[in-house]
Design a protein around this nucleic acid. Structure first.
Lengths: 235, 235
DNA sequence: ATCGAAAATTGGTCTGACCATATTATATAT
DNA sequence: ATATATAATATGGTCAGACCAATTTTCGAT
């Protein structure tokens, strides 16, 4: 078993992370300057800078030239950028992402109903009405559809779940998918949204699950059609 | 709107990422040396090094002292380390993680049945038998239980789904949770595993979902009890 | 052809310098 | 006294050159 010696940069990274935790620094709080860190950690500026850069690239820090070093936002932006590169390098099967989204959406419905949560139906219905307006006015509907689904997940009262879903959604948005829905399809989609809300109102898990499944069907149809038309596994 | 000038390091990072993509470098493939990158990118060694370090910290590269720079494994190790820090800084509600796990496991069952996948029941049953042995011999059972669940997810034929689940699992493993199951509870758990497999064999989604839900009940009971005993939201 | 020592390559760290931007202090005008 | 413009300072960004440590390659002895 080869014991690999830890580099000074890694040690510095750990100590800076620990510094943040021990001092309970929150987002945008200021860290010691490079010069101070050099004194504290007793290493060269090279090491301090490489450590800071690394921590910045994983989103833990934010470096403002001329200003100082600050604690970064915990918005998982760095995770999204990692997935972006992973996608560009390896591709991803759209089918897999859609399957995941379906599972998550079904799961959100389950959480809402099983935990007997109060849902902001007024807002969800207003979102769906905007969706309807977009459909009838031939605007871009995708945005409104997405907002609706996103908000249902938000209603599941699970922040971690919501965060992960957002990451998946970001991943998903990298993939070009144009499933050219006719106005008839879109109106059906709108109707399904309404029915899902009805299912939620009645706390009918089975029904809302059924409708949500139907709601995903055209997407799967489209995907299976696509998969039949090409060989490479990048989409 | 403030246009922020991009630093040379960021530009270098982009160019190196692009280099990997354009040359279709795979895991462990070698990149140009620092010296060569300095010549290629026409920047100082400082910039090249900070760019390489940053790319290493997000898992895209792997730097071997004395050896060279290589493409990193795409095992999401960096994402896990980001989540680790996020957990240490913000904590996480166990309830949320368990809810997510339940949703994912139910989802896996759904994918297997809806896609009519062939499942390696022999292996799953052998895993469950090991679980049984561990229970009766008073060994540590957690490992075997985990293997069983992990493999079910693996059977869902969705690599992205599996990867995300693994990340969640890693996140989960950071949390200390000891739900002290009695031998009686464990035997019930073992039985439920068997019933889940039976449900899968019969392609009975409803049944396997029901058993899986029951399977999670003691965990939720434990968690709700815990939540009642403390106020801080860190667990 | 094999093995081992020597040499070259490669990344790791240190120092000191200079630049650009942001912040702070100071002087000035009102 | 306050507000504003200006200068001084602090901070991160980049560059250059040097030396160290680990790895890889080269090459001679066997």
């Amino acid at each position: 078993m080869a014991i690999q010696k830890t580099s000074l940069v890694e040690i510095a990274m750990d100590r800076i992370k620990t510094y943040i935790l021990e001092n309970k620094l929150k987002e945008n709080d200021k860290l010691p300057t490079e010069k101070e860190l050099i004194a504290k950690l007793q290493v060269s500026r090279t090491v301090v800078r490489e450590a800071l850069r690394s921590l910045e690239s994983i989103g833990i820090l934010k470096i403002k030239p001329g200003g100082g070093v600050f604690v970064g936002d915990s918005d998982f932006r760095s995770i999204k950028s990692i997935l972006k590169h992973h996608y560009e390098a390896h591709g991803v099967k759209i089918r897999e992402l859609v399957e995941i989204r379906k599972i998550l959406e079904l799961g959100a419905l389950r959480l809402i109903i099983e935990k007997n949560l109060d849902v902001d139906f007024d807002y969800l219905e207003s979102l769906n009405q905007e969706y309807y307006q977009a459909i009838t006015h031939n605007w871009d509907t995708k945005k409104y559809d997405q907002l609706f689904h996103q908000h249902i997940i938000q209603e599941a009262d699970n922040e971690t779940f919501y965060n992960f879903t957002e990451v998946i959604q970001e991943y998903f948005s990298l993939v070009k998918i144009d499933l050219m829905q006719s106005k008839k399809d879109l109106l059906a989609s709108y109707k399904e949204h309404s029915e899902i809300l009805a299912g939620l109102k009645n706390k009918n898990l089975e029904y809302s699950h059924k409708i949500m499944s139907v709601h995903f069907e055209p997407i799967f149809d489209y995907i299976y059609e696509m998969e039949g038309l090409k060989e490479d596994g990048t989409n």
